[in-house]
């Protein structure tokens, strides 16, 4: 459809990581700064002292003390241990490498899933949704059962609409997201691909719902009976296929 330029999504984490590393390096440099400044200051001071030696010989005693103290400050306390700023960088680098590995792994998994889904699309007409699990079908079973029980209550129009609402709410779940832009027919198509449902019964129920929801002509007891029959067939199909373990035609 569109020709939106591709976004280099894969490069984003790398760029972020690199930015973090650069920031760490800058922070480390900031830690180093005062020491270098101190050393420079000491060096400056010592050279100034030399000048002073010439000008002010009475300070001779103090100057060698300073010169002796300056090299002592530069000596590392524990020479075999790396500097503290480098030690600080190590965990950050480790975290960055771990994050990179995790991102790459996720990308591979996501890519594999996409390819599998595409392959499934090519292989099967019922491609959109993964197979339902038992708990989701339990909810659907309960909703259809409740719909079949409550279909006798109220006016036929309201009863049919209410039964459809129950069904719609029951099918929507984690693996079957709610799509507000979807029409009843599209929902049926998706539900049939995802659940073990009697295609004819759910299609007819959708047609009855559309009639009850959008028409102005009377909705009669015959419509109610037909909807009740559809719900019973849906109930029977789910129960039978769960016992038999096969998908309804």
């Amino acid at each position: 459809m569109g020709t939106t330029p591709p976004t280099p999504r894969g490069l984003t984490p790398v760029a972020l990581g690199a930015a973090v590393l650069v920031l760490c390096a800058l922070v480390a440099a900031t830690f180093d700064g005062p020491r270098w400044s101190e050393r420079d200051r000491v060096t400056d001071r010592s050279s100034a002292s030399e000048d002073d030696e010439r000008d002010q010989p009475e300070d001779e005693a103090a100057a060698p003390e300073d010169e002796a103290a300056a090299p002592e400050d530069d000596e590392p306390w524990l020479p075999w241990v790396p500097p503290a700023d480098l030690l600080l960088l190590l965990p950050v680098a480790a975290v960055f490498i771990v994050a990179l590995v995790v991102a790459a792994r996720l990308r591979v998994v996501r890519r594999r899933r996409t390819l599998t889904r595409r392959a499934a699309v090519r292989a099967s007409p019922h491609h959109d949704e993964p197979a339902p699990d038992e708990t989701v079908e339990d909810g659907l079973l309960g909703a259809i059962d409740a719909g079949a029980t409550a279909i006798g209550e109220g006016s036929p129009r309201n009863a049919i609409v209410a039964a459809w609402v129950r069904l719609e709410q029951a099918v929507v779940g984690d693996h079957f997201p709610h799509r507000p832009e979807e029409t009843p027919s599209e929902l049926v198509e998706r539900a049939v691909a995802s659940y073990r449902l009697d295609v004819e019964a759910i299609s007819r129920l959708a047609a009855l719902y559309r009639e009850a929801r959008f028409s102005a002509h009377p909705v009669t007891e015959e419509h109610r009976d037909e909807a009740a029959d559809c719900l019973r067939r849906l109930l029977a199909t789910i129960t039978t296929t769960r016992l038999g373990g096969t998908r309804a035609p």
Partner: peptide, 17 residues
């Protein structure tokens, strides 16, 4: 138009019940 059809919510049963 195809994009818009995939975005604008269609009338539902909930609007009525």
């Amino acid at each position: 138009v195809e994009t818009v059809l995939g975005q604008v919510p269609a009338p539902t049963a909930r609007d009525r019940v």
